[in-house]
């Protein structure tokens, strides 16, 4: 009887182990930033604040931070110096009590504009929105990403994970097919990388400019020929949330440089 129990216990262990393998996510010890896949030259460009072109966005952000709107307050009037934002970006997307759902950093900036500054929201991927998120992100450079620690986010993270694992588009590929299973390979000439969004907004050399994680996700979605989510779609925030929670504990690099 005891032997039978041992056998069933080991069977259970095998089943549990197999389902772990099927999940196929990258083990914490194997996680790498996209920066580690870049050339030495591009890494040096990112690491030198005077050479990193993303810093121009940060400087633009500093101007916007203190600019007083016609009616209402500047960011600095409530928040003080931008350095008070240290540790904020590494928690986003974060749960919003009023909306009862997660919002990303771009949405948080726009909520602040509408609710507290009597200003219209900034357009998705606009220069000013990228500048402000680059400035806020920069304050947390080097800090560990904490996104997902809030337990109210779990259901949304799970939805994002489902989307990551789901095959989509004319090419019928899921994010996981490349970014979990083939991150050590090259798609034509380009390193695939592990989908850890450690440095957004990033200055992407291919874009010749700063861009958000959502822009990068839309690039991949068009790559597999699926219908991209709009910037404010709940599915987009869920995917961002899952990706950021995947990178929990990794160092923030904003503004990162990518090829």
């Amino acid at each position: 009887m005891k032997r039978l129990r041992n056998i069933s216990l080991s069977l259970l262990a095998v089943i549990a182990f197999t389902s772990l393998i099927e999940a196929a996510e990258i083990a914490p010890g194997e996680r790498r930033s996209g920066a580690s896949f870049m050339s030495v030259e591009t890494q040096a460009m990112q690491n030198d604040a005077t050479a990193n072109p993303g810093m121009l966005g940060v400087l633009d952000g500093e101007v916007l931070w203190t600019r007083k709107p016609a009616a209402g307050r500047a960011c600095a009037d409530c928040h003080g110096d931008a350095s008070s934002m240290r540790g904020v970006a590494v928690r986003y997307p974060a749960f919003d009590d009023k909306l009862n759902r997660p919002v990303d950093l771009e949405q948080r900036v726009n909520l602040c504009r509408v609710d507290h500054q009597q200003l219209p929201p900034l357009a998705d991927e606009s220069r000013d929105l990228l500048a402000l998120t680059a400035l806020i992100g920069r304050q947390s450079q080097g800090m560990p990403i904490e996104t997902g620690a809030d337990s109210r986010l779990q259901a949304f993270i799970d939805k994002g994970r489902d989307a990551f694992m789901r095959r989509q588009g004319q090419l019928n590929l899921a994010c996981t097919n490349c970014h979990d299973d083939n991150w050590d390979k090259r798609l034509a000439g380009s390193a695939i990388t592990q989908a850890h969004p450690t440095g957004y907004p990033v200055y992407r050399l291919e874009w010749q400019g700063l861009g958000s994680l959502k822009r990068r996700l839309r690039n991949c979605m068009i790559g597999v020929r699926t219908q991209p989510y709009s910037a404010d779609a709940p599915e987009m925030v869920e995917l961002e949330l899952y990706l950021m929670s995947r990178a929990r504990g990794m160092a923030s690099e904003t503004p990162a440089v990518r090829p």
């Binding site: 095959r167 588009g169 004319q170 019928n172 020929r225 699926t226």
Partner: peptide, 24 residues
């Protein structure tokens, strides 16, 4: 497999408008 099906237009999810209903 990660090899796409080059002559297939059904059973796919969220295909972008430009490619909907068309094989690769």
């Amino acid at each position: 497999t990660i090899m796409p099906s080059y002559y297939r237009a059904d059973g796919l999810q969220r295909v972008g408008d430009a490619w909907l209903g068309k094989p690769i």
